[in-house]
């Protein structure tokens, strides 16, 4: 068997002289984390540094921080936060509430997979409206995978009536902080894209544009979207734990297949 080593470009550790299992110093992509970064680096700069060698510029850090704020809480109506509250209300473990938020928030309807698919589309279409037109009008693929068959164009709201105000506000704010290629292009062509698709843009499309402009791959963007939406899920789960299950909706049910009733 080969020596059990973990190869990494991200992290390096030096052991304390008296204990090979205790790190005296830890380096993230060459920077001394506890000796130098701590107290100097912004949270979003550290977040980005974990995924890439180059530190963010000031404008990039401002954009990532604004994105983190925009994604921090999808609100209690969002299925992922709803799932976390189901954990809170029954007294499940904190981790279970976050796992629930991740599992539900991983999907193709407003979740991480949707961001992944839009980022793949950004890679393929760039800032070329004709390429987007083709992507928007192409039939959805019928390839079988663990993911359910897509039911709407990723990044658009299948239940939307018009572009939601926060989507427009987030896009405008991101462009003001960092006039990067995709975001600027999206602000200029949002209406045309929506016209071609027949649906209003969703926040996931704007998030995907920001993440792509920050240089993240589709896989990295999916991970960051999953991570950055957790704070709201955590807070709402704890709040419902405090409030208790009697104040949490249980909903009415209409059972459409019931032998007992059908035979009666």
């Amino acid at each position: 068997m080969s020596e059990p080593v973990i190869q990494t470009r991200i992290w390096q550790e030096e052991a304390e002289p008296d204990n090979p299992f205790a790190a005296r110093a830890a380096f993230c992509r060459g920077y001394d984390v506890y000796g130098e970064l701590l107290g100097q680096i912004r949270w979003v700069e550290m977040l980005a540094l974990l995924f890439r060698d180059e530190a963010l510029t000031k404008a990039e850090a401002d954009l990532l921080e604004a994105l983190a704020v925009a994604l921090a809480n999808p609100g209690p109506r969002d299925p992922a936060v709803h799932a976390a509250m189901c954990g809170g209300v029954g007294g499940s473990t904190s981790a279970a509430s976050l796992i629930a938020a991740l599992a539900v928030g991983a999907g193709q309807y407003g979740g991480g997979r949707e961001v992944f698919l839009v980022m793949q589309a950004w890679e393929a279409c760039g800032t070329n409206l004709d390429a987007w037109r083709q992507w928007l009008t192409a039939p959805t693929t019928d390839e079988v995978s663990i993911w359910p068959a897509p039911q709407h164009k990723p990044g658009f709201d299948p239940h939307g009536a018009s572009t939601a105000t926060p989507v427009k506000q987030a896009l405008a704010c991101f462009v003001s902080l960092n006039s990067s290629a995709r975001l600027v292009w999206l602000e200029q062509h949002r209406a045309e894209m929506e016209e071609i698709c027949g649906l209003p843009l969703a926040l996931s499309f704007v998030a995907a544009a920001a993440l792509a402009d920050l240089g993240f791959s589709a896989e990295q963007g999916e991970m960051l979207h999953l991570l950055l939406r957790l704070p709201g899920a955590a807070a709402h789960a704890l709040e419902q734990r405090q409030l208790g299950h009697k104040k949490f909706p249980f909903f009415a049910i209409e059972l459409q297949h019931d032998n007992a009733r059908e035979q009666a």
């Binding site: 992290w11 390096q12 090979p20 130098e36 060698d53 530190a55």
Partner: peptide
């Protein structure tokens, strides 16, 4: 142990 991490990234540098 710390030595079981085989670092292959950027050399040490100042922030």
């Amino acid at each position: 142990t710390c030595a079981h991490i085989r670092y292959e990234g950027v050399a040490k540098r100042r922030w």
